[in-house]
Write a protein that binds this DNA or RNA. Structure first.
Length: 439
RNA sequence: GUGGGUGUAGCUCAGUGGUUAGAGCACCAGGUUGUGGCCCUGGGGGCCGAGGGUUCAAGUCCCUUCAUCCACCCCA
């Protein structure tokens, strides 16, 4: 039969897998540095747990089916709802609860560049505090991760749902039309002000006051100075108490970023950021990269009411998510991806089947010394064995022939330089150690 | 869900309706019976995505279908 892989799903061959593992290790390291702890949950949830949490479009994209007990189950759509369920089921968890979760999620979407049906999210969330310093910390972590991965041209866009609400109220848009309004506003980057006006008109949301306000707002939305941007935001929430509070929260984010030495060029208070999910209640943020056009690479925000859906108590919460596949796509396009070198450090060639026990013994010694070692299994010509090492980019080869064996020696070869020497087996470990330390 | 592009060797792609469908790279073997990369020689590989149609003749034209990529919607 014809081998096939489901549409939108992918195999990760070793070369790519090495990069993925390295990235995940890096993020894990940073998350733990900030005091986050790991969590994992099942890939399957009851459908009712997920449905109705992501809006209409979200429900359509959830993979769902019946299990043998005829219950509707669904593959998780993100990591936030499972987290909410966990927190609601375990009220004893000490707050604030800071957890990270790196795992695949599934969406029955139509695949595209940088978009798949199975993809990894890397989430960090802080449950149980309303402090804006928590939101600020998420942004500092976002910055740290991208910096340490070697990213240069990225901008963290920051806004607050409270400000958007205030703006809508002040400009005659009813609460029930807010999601519609936000969706149109979010397209400003793509379609420009005229495009947004056109779409708002089509939706019947357009009015003169709105036109004036939006024109005024977006005119200098690219204000270089963050204090100016914040002042501008103040002016649009005029007379709206929750809106004022929203700006105050952003001031704390700004304070946090400044005190953490985050490059001011890497973030922006951006009134036009809306984000799709309905459940955000406070600060929202996402990161865009300018070089390869690929959409956002991180996204998140505060969702103080979500966990309440699963519990009598309410839990304030804030979180953000990194798109692993998109980070990788960018790293590959920018050429900062991993070298092709094998993880195997030494290949022990087979000279004579009679000597295999000695090959195995030597391999064991090297492995005990922490050196990744493989033995060649077949009795092929030495030429072929070296070709194998060469093609797999294994940096060192050890040859044990009858001559070496007789003298208790071994021939060791550096495949990069081509140099080789015959040394005592006793000295082998320190020889490799010295060589491996060199760049 | 809507609209476009592309399907020829493992990969990247040539191929004016007209013999037996090609190239580069990759792969295998030999040149070298204890030594990879460079070079030379040779070799294996293809239902030209699938199905139907037009034609004396189809990789090439038409229709259908599938796959894939891109854009929209939405999103990481």
């Amino acid at each position: 039969m014809e081998p096939q892989i489901p549409k939108g799903f992918r195999d990760f061959l070793p070369e790519r897998m090495r990069l993925r593992k390295r990235l995940i290790a890096k993020m894990t390291d940073i998350f733990e540095r900030f005091g986050f702890e790991p969590l994992d949950t099942p890939c399957l949830e009851y459908a009712e747990t997920l449905l109705g949490k992501y809006g209409e479009e979200g429900d359509r994209l959830i993979y769902k089916f019946q299990d043998r007990g005829e219950r509707m189950v669904a593959l998780r759509y993100d990591l936030t709802i499972p987290l909410s369920r966990v927190v609601a089921m375990h009220p004893e968890i000490i707050k604030p609860f800071k957890r990270y979760h790196i795992a695949p999620v599934w969406r029955a979407d139509k695949p595209q560049k940088g978009r798949f049906r199975e993809f990894y999210q890397c989430d960090i969330d802080i449950i149980g505090t309303t402090s804006s310093y928590a939101d600020g910390e998420l942004l500092v972590i976002t910055y740290t991760v991208l910096k340490e991965l070697g990213f240069k041209n990225f901008i963290i866009r920051i806004n607050n749902r409270k400000i958007l609400n205030a703006f809508a109220v002040n400009n005659g848009i009813g609460e029930e039309r807010l999601p519609d309004f936000l969706r149109s506003l979010d397209k400003l980057d793509k379609t420009g002000l005229e495009g947004v006006f056109a779409e708002l008109t089509e939706k019947g949301l357009m009015n003169d006051q709105l036109r004036t306000s939006l024109t005024a707002m977006t005119g200098d939305s690219a204000a270089a100075d963050h204090n100016e941007s914040l002042a501008l935001l103040d002016s649009i929430v005029m007379g709206h108490e929750a809106g004022r509070q929203g700006v105050a929260e952003l001031r704390i984010l700004h304070e946090t970023l400044q005190a953490s030495n985050v490059d001011p060029a890497c973030y922006r208070f951006d009134f036009t950021l809306a984000r799709g999910l309905d459940y955000y209640t406070g600060p929202i943020f996402e990161t865009i990269v300018t070089e390869p056009k690929i959409g956002s690479i991180t996204g998140g925000g505060r969702y103080d009411n979500l966990i309440g859906l699963f519990s009598k108590e309410t839990f304030p919460a804030t979180g953000t998510s990194f798109g692993l596949e998109r980070l990788i796509t960018i790293m590959e396009e920018l050429g900062s991806a991993e070298s092709k070198q094998s993880l195997t450090q030494v290949l022990i060639t087979q000279f004579d089947p009679q000597l295999m026990p000695h090959n195995l013994r030597i391999a064991g010694m090297l492995r005990d010394a922490g050196i990744n070692t493989e033995v060649y299994f077949s009795q092929d010509k030495l030429k072929k064995q070296l070709t194998y090492a060469s093609h797999k980019a294994i940096p060192f080869v050890a040859i044990l022939g009858p001559d070496e064996h007789r003298d208790g020696k071994i021939t060791v070869k550096n495949m990069t330089t081509g140099n080789q020497e015959t040394i005592l087996q006793y000295d082998m470990e320190s020889w490799f150690r010295t060589q491996l330390l060199q760049p």
